[in-house]
Computed example of a mutant assay.
Amino acid sequence: MEKPAEFSVRDEGGRAIVSLVGDWTANTLGEAPSRLAQAMRSHSDFSVDIRKVRRLDTAGAFALVRAAGPTFDLKTVLARPQNERLLELVGAAVRVKPVLANPPRGFHELTVRIGKGVVNVAYEWIDTLAFLGHLLVVVARTAVFLFTDPKRIRWAAIFSLAERAGLDAIPIVAVTSFFIGAVVGLLGANMLSQFGAEVFAVELIGIAVLREFNIIITAVLLAGRSASSFAAELGSMKMNQEIDAMQVMGVDPFEALVLPRFLALLLTIPLLTFVATLAGLFGGMVVVWSVLHLGPTFFLQRIVDNVGAVHFWVGLSKAPVMAMVIAGIGCRQGLEVGGDVESLGRRVTASVVHAIFAIIMIDAAFALLFMKLNV
Protein backbone atom coordinates (compact mmCIF):
# COMPACT_ATOMS: atom_id res chain seq x y z
CA MET A 1 0.00 0.00 0.00
CA GLU A 2 1.31 3.42 -0.89
CA LYS A 3 2.12 5.87 1.89
CA PRO A 4 1.86 9.63 1.34
CA ALA A 5 5.02 11.70 1.09
CA GLU A 6 5.87 13.34 4.42
CA PHE A 7 8.88 14.99 6.04
CA SER A 8 10.05 16.38 9.37
CA VAL A 9 12.63 19.00 10.34
CA ARG A 10 14.78 18.85 13.45
CA ASP A 11 17.69 20.98 14.64
CA GLU A 12 21.06 19.42 15.47
CA GLY A 13 23.81 21.79 16.54
CA GLY A 14 22.40 24.73 14.57
CA ARG A 15 21.97 22.66 11.42
CA ALA A 16 18.54 21.69 10.16
CA ILE A 17 18.04 18.00 9.34
CA VAL A 18 15.17 17.37 6.90
CA SER A 19 14.02 13.75 7.07
CA LEU A 20 11.78 12.39 4.31
CA VAL A 21 9.52 9.39 4.88
CA GLY A 22 6.84 7.56 2.92
CA ASP A 23 6.62 7.18 -0.85
CA TRP A 24 7.92 10.12 -2.86
CA THR A 25 6.38 9.21 -6.19
CA ALA A 26 4.18 11.04 -8.68
CA ASN A 27 1.01 9.49 -7.21
CA THR A 28 1.75 10.31 -3.56
CA LEU A 29 3.45 13.73 -3.59
CA GLY A 30 0.38 15.83 -3.02
CA GLU A 31 1.23 19.16 -1.35
CA ALA A 32 4.48 17.88 0.15
CA PRO A 33 6.84 19.53 -2.42
CA SER A 34 5.50 23.03 -1.77
CA ARG A 35 5.67 22.57 2.03
CA LEU A 36 9.18 21.12 1.71
CA ALA A 37 10.37 24.09 -0.33
CA GLN A 38 8.92 26.51 2.23
CA ALA A 39 10.63 24.66 5.07
CA MET A 40 14.00 24.62 3.31
CA ARG A 41 13.84 28.32 2.46
CA SER A 42 13.49 29.09 6.19
CA HIS A 43 16.88 27.46 6.91
CA SER A 44 20.16 28.56 5.41
CA ASP A 45 22.09 25.48 6.53
CA PHE A 46 20.44 22.09 6.21
CA SER A 47 21.01 18.50 5.18
CA VAL A 48 18.54 15.94 3.85
CA ASP A 49 18.02 12.38 5.03
CA ILE A 50 16.02 10.19 2.64
CA ARG A 51 17.15 6.79 3.89
CA LYS A 52 13.65 6.09 5.27
CA VAL A 53 11.93 6.84 1.95
CA ARG A 54 10.30 3.64 0.72
CA ARG A 55 10.09 4.55 -2.98
CA LEU A 56 11.53 7.46 -4.94
CA ASP A 57 10.92 8.19 -8.61
CA THR A 58 11.98 11.05 -10.88
CA ALA A 59 9.00 13.16 -9.81
CA GLY A 60 9.99 12.87 -6.15
CA ALA A 61 13.66 13.49 -6.93
CA PHE A 62 12.77 16.58 -8.95
CA ALA A 63 10.56 17.86 -6.13
CA LEU A 64 13.47 17.51 -3.69
CA VAL A 65 16.00 19.17 -6.00
CA ARG A 66 13.64 22.04 -6.78
CA ALA A 67 12.81 22.55 -3.11
CA ALA A 68 16.52 22.71 -2.22
CA GLY A 69 17.04 25.40 -4.84
CA PRO A 70 20.23 26.32 -6.71
CA THR A 71 22.36 25.58 -3.62
CA PHE A 72 21.48 21.88 -3.78
CA ASP A 73 24.53 19.73 -3.07
CA LEU A 74 24.39 15.97 -3.21
CA LYS A 75 27.02 15.79 -0.44
CA THR A 76 24.43 17.07 2.04
CA VAL A 77 22.03 14.20 1.26
CA LEU A 78 22.00 10.90 3.14
CA ALA A 79 20.52 8.29 0.83
CA ARG A 80 20.75 4.72 -0.34
CA PRO A 81 23.02 4.20 -3.38
CA GLN A 82 20.18 3.81 -5.87
CA ASN A 83 18.39 6.95 -4.66
CA GLU A 84 21.67 8.84 -4.63
CA ARG A 85 22.23 7.93 -8.27
CA LEU A 86 18.71 9.04 -9.15
CA LEU A 87 19.22 12.40 -7.42
CA GLU A 88 22.51 12.83 -9.25
CA LEU A 89 20.87 12.27 -12.65
CA VAL A 90 17.88 14.53 -11.91
CA GLY A 91 20.09 17.28 -10.47
CA ALA A 92 22.35 17.20 -13.54
CA ALA A 93 19.33 17.39 -15.82
CA VAL A 94 17.87 20.35 -13.92
CA ARG A 95 21.12 22.30 -14.10
CA VAL A 96 21.36 21.97 -17.90
CA LYS A 97 20.39 25.26 -19.51
CA PRO A 98 18.39 24.92 -22.73
CA VAL A 99 20.14 26.20 -25.82
CA LEU A 100 17.85 28.47 -27.79
CA ALA A 101 18.73 28.40 -31.45
CA ASN A 102 17.98 31.58 -33.31
CA PRO A 103 15.46 30.81 -36.06
CA PRO A 104 16.69 31.59 -39.57
CA ARG A 105 15.42 34.85 -41.00
CA GLY A 106 15.39 36.60 -44.30
CA PHE A 107 17.33 34.97 -47.11
CA HIS A 108 18.57 32.21 -44.80
CA GLU A 109 14.99 31.22 -43.99
CA LEU A 110 14.14 31.19 -47.70
CA THR A 111 17.03 28.86 -48.51
CA VAL A 112 16.08 26.54 -45.64
CA ARG A 113 12.49 26.31 -46.85
CA ILE A 114 13.59 25.68 -50.43
CA GLY A 115 15.98 22.96 -49.25
CA LYS A 116 13.30 21.25 -47.19
CA GLY A 117 10.92 21.45 -50.14
CA VAL A 118 13.45 19.81 -52.46
CA VAL A 119 14.11 17.03 -49.94
CA ASN A 120 10.37 16.46 -49.46
CA VAL A 121 9.85 16.26 -53.23
CA ALA A 122 12.64 13.66 -53.45
CA TYR A 123 11.07 11.58 -50.67
CA GLU A 124 7.63 11.87 -52.29
CA TRP A 125 9.08 10.71 -55.62
CA ILE A 126 10.75 7.69 -54.01
CA ASP A 127 7.55 6.75 -52.15
CA THR A 128 5.55 7.14 -55.36
CA LEU A 129 7.89 4.81 -57.24
CA ALA A 130 7.63 2.26 -54.43
CA PHE A 131 3.83 2.52 -54.49
CA LEU A 132 3.76 2.13 -58.28
CA GLY A 133 6.07 -0.88 -58.18
CA HIS A 134 3.97 -2.64 -55.57
CA LEU A 135 0.81 -1.87 -57.52
CA LEU A 136 2.27 -3.25 -60.78
CA VAL A 137 3.16 -6.49 -59.00
CA VAL A 138 -0.42 -6.80 -57.72
CA VAL A 139 -1.84 -6.03 -61.18
CA ALA A 140 0.34 -8.72 -62.77
CA ARG A 141 -0.68 -11.22 -60.08
CA THR A 142 -4.35 -10.36 -60.58
CA ALA A 143 -4.02 -10.78 -64.35
CA VAL A 144 -2.72 -14.31 -63.73
CA PHE A 145 -5.64 -15.00 -61.37
CA LEU A 146 -8.06 -13.82 -64.07
CA PHE A 147 -7.15 -16.85 -66.17
CA THR A 148 -6.18 -19.37 -63.50
CA ASP A 149 -8.39 -18.65 -60.48
CA PRO A 150 -11.01 -15.89 -61.10
CA LYS A 151 -12.58 -16.49 -57.69
CA ARG A 152 -9.57 -14.88 -55.98
CA ILE A 153 -10.42 -11.51 -57.56
CA ARG A 154 -12.60 -9.38 -55.30
CA TRP A 155 -15.44 -8.81 -57.74
CA ALA A 156 -17.92 -7.72 -55.05
CA ALA A 157 -15.61 -4.96 -53.82
CA ILE A 158 -14.87 -3.79 -57.38
CA PHE A 159 -18.52 -3.44 -58.40
CA SER A 160 -19.53 -1.94 -55.05
CA LEU A 161 -16.82 0.72 -55.35
CA ALA A 162 -17.70 1.27 -59.01
CA GLU A 163 -21.27 2.08 -58.01
CA ARG A 164 -20.31 4.28 -55.06
CA ALA A 165 -17.35 6.12 -56.61
CA GLY A 166 -18.59 6.25 -60.20
CA LEU A 167 -22.26 5.66 -60.88
CA ASP A 168 -23.42 7.74 -57.93
CA ALA A 169 -21.53 10.67 -59.47
CA ILE A 170 -23.61 10.67 -62.67
CA PRO A 171 -26.05 13.41 -61.52
CA ILE A 172 -23.36 15.91 -60.47
CA VAL A 173 -21.27 15.18 -63.58
CA ALA A 174 -24.28 15.61 -65.87
CA VAL A 175 -25.44 18.85 -64.25
CA THR A 176 -21.95 20.39 -64.21
CA SER A 177 -21.25 19.42 -67.82
CA PHE A 178 -24.62 20.82 -68.89
CA PHE A 179 -23.81 24.23 -67.51
CA ILE A 180 -20.26 24.12 -68.90
CA GLY A 181 -21.67 23.42 -72.36
CA ALA A 182 -24.18 26.21 -71.90
CA VAL A 183 -21.46 28.68 -70.87
CA VAL A 184 -19.31 27.74 -73.87
CA GLY A 185 -22.34 28.22 -76.09
CA LEU A 186 -23.09 31.65 -74.64
CA LEU A 187 -19.49 32.80 -75.01
CA GLY A 188 -19.29 31.47 -78.57
CA ALA A 189 -22.56 33.07 -79.61
CA ASN A 190 -21.59 36.41 -78.06
CA MET A 191 -18.09 36.56 -79.55
CA LEU A 192 -18.84 35.13 -83.00
CA SER A 193 -21.88 37.38 -83.48
CA GLN A 194 -19.46 40.31 -83.81
CA PHE A 195 -18.13 38.74 -87.01
CA GLY A 196 -21.42 37.44 -88.33
CA ALA A 197 -20.30 33.84 -87.76
CA GLU A 198 -22.78 32.76 -85.10
CA VAL A 199 -23.30 29.43 -86.83
CA PHE A 200 -19.75 28.36 -85.95
CA ALA A 201 -20.72 28.36 -82.28
CA VAL A 202 -21.90 24.80 -82.92
CA GLU A 203 -18.38 23.69 -83.90
CA LEU A 204 -16.93 25.53 -80.91
CA ILE A 205 -19.26 23.74 -78.53
CA GLY A 206 -18.67 20.37 -80.16
CA ILE A 207 -14.87 20.54 -80.13
CA ALA A 208 -14.66 22.03 -76.63
CA VAL A 209 -17.03 19.51 -75.08
CA LEU A 210 -15.98 16.39 -76.99
CA ARG A 211 -12.25 16.98 -76.77
CA GLU A 212 -11.61 18.69 -73.42
CA PHE A 213 -14.44 19.59 -71.09
CA ASN A 214 -16.07 16.16 -70.90
CA ILE A 215 -13.02 14.43 -69.46
CA ILE A 216 -11.71 17.45 -67.53
CA ILE A 217 -14.99 18.05 -65.69
CA THR A 218 -15.38 14.34 -64.96
CA ALA A 219 -11.82 13.97 -63.68
CA VAL A 220 -11.91 17.10 -61.51
CA LEU A 221 -15.20 16.07 -59.92
CA LEU A 222 -13.89 12.58 -59.23
CA ALA A 223 -10.70 14.07 -57.81
CA GLY A 224 -12.75 15.98 -55.26
CA ARG A 225 -15.22 13.18 -54.71
CA SER A 226 -13.43 9.85 -55.07
CA ALA A 227 -9.77 10.68 -54.40
CA SER A 228 -10.65 12.30 -51.08
CA SER A 229 -12.96 9.39 -50.25
CA PHE A 230 -10.23 6.83 -50.96
CA ALA A 231 -7.72 8.78 -48.87
CA ALA A 232 -10.15 9.14 -45.97
CA GLU A 233 -11.17 5.46 -46.02
CA LEU A 234 -7.65 4.04 -46.18
CA GLY A 235 -6.38 6.69 -43.75
CA SER A 236 -9.03 5.78 -41.20
CA MET A 237 -8.11 2.11 -41.56
CA LYS A 238 -4.45 3.01 -41.14
CA MET A 239 -5.19 4.99 -37.96
CA ASN A 240 -7.20 2.08 -36.51
CA GLN A 241 -4.36 -0.33 -37.40
CA GLU A 242 -6.71 -2.36 -39.59
CA ILE A 243 -4.15 -2.39 -42.41
CA ASP A 244 -1.49 -3.68 -40.01
CA ALA A 245 -3.89 -6.40 -38.93
CA MET A 246 -4.45 -7.38 -42.57
CA GLN A 247 -0.71 -7.69 -43.11
CA VAL A 248 -0.38 -9.83 -39.98
CA MET A 249 -3.08 -12.16 -41.35
CA GLY A 250 -1.23 -12.43 -44.66
CA VAL A 251 -3.58 -10.22 -46.71
CA ASP A 252 -1.91 -7.78 -49.10
CA PRO A 253 -3.52 -4.32 -48.60
CA PHE A 254 -2.76 -3.45 -52.21
CA GLU A 255 -4.67 -6.47 -53.43
CA ALA A 256 -7.57 -6.03 -51.01
CA LEU A 257 -7.91 -2.23 -50.91
CA VAL A 258 -5.98 -0.43 -53.64
CA LEU A 259 -6.56 -2.61 -56.70
CA PRO A 260 -10.40 -2.68 -56.39
CA ARG A 261 -10.42 1.12 -56.34
CA PHE A 262 -8.22 1.26 -59.42
CA LEU A 263 -10.43 -1.13 -61.35
CA ALA A 264 -13.61 0.60 -60.16
CA LEU A 265 -12.51 3.97 -61.56
CA LEU A 266 -11.20 2.35 -64.76
CA LEU A 267 -14.67 0.91 -65.32
CA THR A 268 -16.69 4.01 -64.49
CA ILE A 269 -14.72 6.98 -65.87
CA PRO A 270 -15.42 6.14 -69.55
CA LEU A 271 -19.12 5.91 -68.74
CA LEU A 272 -19.04 9.21 -66.83
CA THR A 273 -17.12 10.83 -69.70
CA PHE A 274 -19.83 9.71 -72.13
CA VAL A 275 -22.54 11.10 -69.83
CA ALA A 276 -20.62 14.38 -69.54
CA THR A 277 -20.35 14.56 -73.32
CA LEU A 278 -24.09 14.15 -73.80
CA ALA A 279 -24.90 16.65 -71.05
CA GLY A 280 -22.43 19.23 -72.39
CA LEU A 281 -23.72 18.96 -75.94
CA PHE A 282 -27.27 19.22 -74.65
CA GLY A 283 -26.43 22.37 -72.70
CA GLY A 284 -24.78 23.94 -75.76
CA MET A 285 -27.71 22.91 -77.96
CA VAL A 286 -30.19 24.55 -75.60
CA VAL A 287 -28.24 27.82 -75.73
CA VAL A 288 -27.86 27.73 -79.53
CA TRP A 289 -31.55 26.98 -79.91
CA SER A 290 -32.71 29.72 -77.54
CA VAL A 291 -30.17 32.44 -78.42
CA LEU A 292 -29.31 31.85 -82.07
CA HIS A 293 -32.60 30.14 -83.00
CA LEU A 294 -30.79 27.19 -84.58
CA GLY A 295 -32.80 24.02 -84.05
CA PRO A 296 -31.60 20.72 -82.60
CA THR A 297 -31.60 19.03 -86.02
CA PHE A 298 -29.30 21.69 -87.45
CA PHE A 299 -27.08 21.52 -84.35
CA LEU A 300 -26.67 17.74 -84.47
CA GLN A 301 -26.12 17.72 -88.23
CA ARG A 302 -23.27 20.22 -87.99
CA ILE A 303 -21.75 18.23 -85.12
CA VAL A 304 -21.76 15.10 -87.28
CA ASP A 305 -20.54 16.81 -90.47
CA ASN A 306 -17.97 19.29 -89.15
CA VAL A 307 -16.85 17.92 -85.80
CA GLY A 308 -17.01 14.17 -86.18
CA ALA A 309 -16.20 11.36 -83.80
CA VAL A 310 -12.42 11.88 -83.76
CA HIS A 311 -12.60 14.54 -81.09
CA PHE A 312 -14.79 12.30 -78.95
CA TRP A 313 -12.27 9.46 -79.11
CA VAL A 314 -9.46 11.91 -78.33
CA GLY A 315 -11.25 12.94 -75.15
CA LEU A 316 -12.18 9.38 -74.23
CA SER A 317 -8.59 8.18 -74.67
CA LYS A 318 -7.58 10.28 -71.65
CA ALA A 319 -10.09 8.57 -69.36
CA PRO A 320 -8.02 5.50 -68.33
CA VAL A 321 -4.99 7.65 -67.52
CA MET A 322 -7.10 10.03 -65.44
CA ALA A 323 -8.65 7.06 -63.61
CA MET A 324 -5.26 5.61 -62.69
CA VAL A 325 -3.94 8.97 -61.53
CA ILE A 326 -6.98 9.78 -59.38
CA ALA A 327 -7.15 6.34 -57.78
CA GLY A 328 -3.39 6.16 -57.30
CA ILE A 329 -3.09 9.54 -55.61
CA GLY A 330 -6.08 8.94 -53.36
CA CYS A 331 -4.92 5.48 -52.25
CA ARG A 332 -1.30 6.50 -51.81
CA GLN A 333 -2.18 9.49 -49.64
CA GLY A 334 -4.48 7.30 -47.57
CA LEU A 335 -1.72 4.77 -46.93
CA GLU A 336 0.62 7.58 -45.81
CA VAL A 337 -1.68 8.70 -42.98
CA GLY A 338 -0.08 8.65 -39.53
CA GLY A 339 -1.71 7.97 -36.21
CA ASP A 340 -3.47 11.31 -35.63
CA VAL A 341 -6.47 13.12 -37.07
CA GLU A 342 -4.31 16.05 -38.23
CA SER A 343 -2.37 13.72 -40.50
CA LEU A 344 -5.63 12.36 -41.90
CA GLY A 345 -6.94 15.82 -42.74
CA ARG A 346 -3.62 16.85 -44.27
CA ARG A 347 -3.46 13.75 -46.48
CA VAL A 348 -7.08 14.05 -47.62
CA THR A 349 -6.46 17.67 -48.63
CA ALA A 350 -3.24 16.68 -50.38
CA SER A 351 -5.04 13.95 -52.33
CA VAL A 352 -7.49 16.44 -53.85
CA VAL A 353 -4.85 19.10 -54.58
CA HIS A 354 -2.37 16.63 -56.08
CA ALA A 355 -5.06 14.92 -58.16
CA ILE A 356 -6.35 18.18 -59.68
CA PHE A 357 -2.80 19.35 -60.39
CA ALA A 358 -1.97 16.01 -62.05
CA ILE A 359 -5.15 16.18 -64.13
CA ILE A 360 -4.25 19.61 -65.53
CA MET A 361 -0.67 18.55 -66.24
CA ILE A 362 -1.72 15.32 -67.97
CA ASP A 363 -4.30 17.13 -70.08
CA ALA A 364 -1.63 19.61 -71.17
CA ALA A 365 0.70 16.72 -72.08
CA PHE A 366 -2.07 15.07 -74.11
CA ALA A 367 -2.76 18.36 -75.90
CA LEU A 368 0.90 18.66 -76.92
CA LEU A 369 0.98 15.00 -78.00
CA PHE A 370 -2.13 15.25 -80.16
CA MET A 371 -0.88 18.51 -81.65
CA LYS A 372 2.35 16.78 -82.72
CA LEU A 373 0.32 13.89 -84.11
CA ASN A 374 -1.99 16.34 -85.88
CA VAL A 375 -5.04 14.67 -84.38
Rank of each mutant, 00 (worst) to 15 (best):
L186H: 10
G280N: 08
I269L: 15
L294C: 06
P260Y: 10
A227V: 06
G284H: 01
A264N: 05
V184Y: 02
L263I: 15
R302L: 10
R225Q: 08
L186R: 05
F213W: 07
S236A: 14
E255Q: 15
V199H: 04
Q241N: 14
I205Q: 01
V220P: 10
L221M: 11
G206L: 02
I216D: 11
F299Y: 15
F230R: 01
G224P: 10
G224T: 07
M249Y: 13
E203W: 02
I215M: 14
F282D: 03
F262S: 03
M246H: 13
L267Q: 01
V258A: 05
V286F: 09
M239C: 12
T297Q: 12
W289N: 12
A276M: 08
A279K: 00
I207G: 05
G280P: 07
V288C: 08
V275N: 01
P296R: 01
P296M: 09
F262I: 14
V275T: 11
M191E: 14
G235D: 08
A231F: 02
A223W: 01
Q247Y: 10
Q301W: 10
I216V: 12
A219V: 04
I215D: 01
G188R: 04
L257G: 02
A197M: 10
A231L: 05
G206P: 02
Q247G: 12
T218G: 06
N214V: 00
E198Y: 04
A264E: 04
